[in-house]
Nucleic acid binder design. Structure first.
Lengths: 152, 152
DNA sequence: GCGTTGTCATTTCATTTGAAACGAAAGTCA
DNA sequence: TGACTTTCGTTTCAAATGAAATGACAACGC
């Protein structure tokens, strides 16, 4: 009697050891910490920050390109660009030959803004990584790279 | 002549090498991939999934506790719990002595649901990690742990 | 006891989000 | 050329989000 039912005792699920959850929590933390750098001081949101960062290295970029390149919804990019333009940080023009496309470009003020934020952002990253040795940092970089390169 | 201006040439900012961005992209990917497991098939959202996961290991839990424990806004927890209750997956009661508190608990159906989803979630995690060797997985785990343990 | 303060969960409300619809502009094919 | 399909960016609209207000209760001080 009392034969064990065929249920899997299924070792209890540990959310804290679950990769998607862990990475999500870490990402939130980092995003929030980074936001402190640019949100209050410069009135910039996260989507805006990403657009700035991408434009800083690539002039004359279309919304589509940022969308593909920067892992953001194209609506988000469009809105971020609109806000940045309203603030005078970005200039928007129509592509000379293909009139569907938009050419985004940092304005002088936008460049100045970014040059001010970027060192702070890098400092934040450095601080976040301060508990890791150089070897560990390299390892982390490589591992994240591998995960990002994975199929889906 | 042509003395270099004192401007920092400031090596161009590379978003793709920037930790907060990388981790954010990775987190989105993992969350989205995982969502495919429970969203369509079970009609569960991410906040709901997290509440289920936490309840699966801890009976009689308050909203506050989940909020603190699971890195989610307490409003989010409250709403996820409400939905889960409406679906019959969670039972909600008032704490016997402290009437401010809520006691959340998986119903039989909720337990069954979770027991069905959990293996799929773990399989997804396994697949996501399939490109890494056991050593690399351990290293990743440790590194994420260290970053999460960092001050802020 | 009774007023004050603090805590918990929910509700409210303004903002953010993204899927789908849209208009404009190319591209394609006959 | 002229219908068609496709692509790009924006707008629309409904859902998700979270800060602040609310209401219910508990804990403390006196």
């Amino acid at each position: 009697m009392s034969a064990k039912p065929p249920q899997k005792p299924s070792k209890p699920f540990d959310l804290d050891a679950f990769l998607p959850y862990r990475v999500s929590v870490l990402a939130s933390r980092l995003s929030q910490g980074l936001a402190k750098v640019y949100q209050d001081r410069f009135g910039i949101s996260n989507p805006e920050w990403r657009v700035l960062a991408h434009l800083s290295g690539n002039a004359k970029v279309s919304v589509r390109e940022i969308h593909a390149r920067v892992a953001m919804d194209k609506v988000k990019v469009s809105r971020a660009a609109a806000r940045l333009e309203a603030c005078g940080f970005v200039r928007k023009a129509t592509h000379p030959t293909d009139h569907r496309l938009v050419e985004l470009q940092l304005s002088t003020e936008g460049r100045a803004l970014f040059d001010e934020i970027a060192p702070l952002a890098l400092a934040y990253e450095k601080q976040a990584l301060s508990g890791l040795s150089p070897d560990e940092r390299r390892a982390l970089h490589t591992l994240v790279e591998m995960l990002l390169a994975a199929p889906t």
